[in-house]
């Protein structure tokens, strides 16, 4: 059984729908325990919660094996399940809400700048914000920004998931990303005002 690929093991389990061979499931899961354990530990930051989350992920995988179509590697499909469970956990428990330091990041510790962001929020659309993010940020900043603001992942979890080694982890990337975006939006705003001014003169 050890010679079979992951996908062959899943197919074997699917053939025996209702009572898949336990040895086959055991072999499949055993190959991925460390991967999911590492992911969950990086997400939660403590081993007990990580074990509970990983257990839920494998239970979900077991319940959903029938829906695996073999159109991707099993590990990619497993990632989807793990990712969804993490997003659900964040939604259920709002773990990112009370993280110390977030208030500093949201206001950037500078009331004037916060006012500027508030104004920017009124002016730019989500579509434009997407384009600005893509244009201004490097790969890590994009990933950190997306996971923190788009998925509500905590900064500590993002630091661990992306393997960031710098002292302040994801927090530093959020700050640098917002500085870059701030400059870009200021430039964009100045151009808009210039265009409006030129229009009046005509």
């Amino acid at each position: 059984m050890g010679r079979l690929s992951d996908e062959e093991l899943v197919a074997l389990a699917q053939e025996a729908a209702g009572s898949p061979p336990v040895a086959c499931i055991n072999e499949l899961f055993r190959r991925h325990y460390a991967r999911v354990a590492r992911w969950c530990f990086r997400f939660t930051g403590d081993r007990e919660s990580a074990a509970d989350l990983a257990q839920e992920i494998f239970a979900k995988v077991y319940r959903s094996l029938g829906s695996f179509r073999g159109q991707s590697k099993f590990s990619t499909w497993l990632y989807s399940v793990a990712r969804n469970e993490c997003v659900n956990a964040v939604k259920a428990l709002s773990i990112s809400q009370a993280e110390p330091g977030d208030d500093v990041l949201l206001g950037l510790a500078n009331p004037d700048e916060s006012d500027f962001w508030f104004a920017a929020e009124r002016m730019i659309s989500a579509q434009l914000a997407r384009e600005l993010l893509n244009e201004a940020l490097d790969e890590t900043e994009k990933a950190v920004f997306t996971l923190h603001f788009g998925r509500n992942f905590s900064l500590a979890a993002i630091t661990r998931l992306l393997g960031l080694r710098n002292a302040s982890g994801a927090k530093a990337y959020v700050v640098s990303a917002r500085r870059k975006l701030s400059k870009l939006i200021q430039r964009w705003q100045a151009q808009e005002q210039r265009a409006v001014g030129e229009g009046r003169e005509r």
């Binding site: 460390a34 081993r47 509970d52 077991y62 319940r63 428990l93």
Partner: peptide, 30 residues
């Protein structure tokens, strides 16, 4: 930690197979 979690998963294998449908995950809470 990864090694401990892996051992836990092996120990909980039966529980994984018999888990009832879609119980919410109590992450970050004991």
């Amino acid at each position: 930690a990864v090694s401990w979690i892996t051992a836990e998963l092996e120990r909980r294998f039966e529980r994984i197979l018999t888990a009832s449908s879609a119980a919410p995950v109590a992450v970050l809470h004991k």
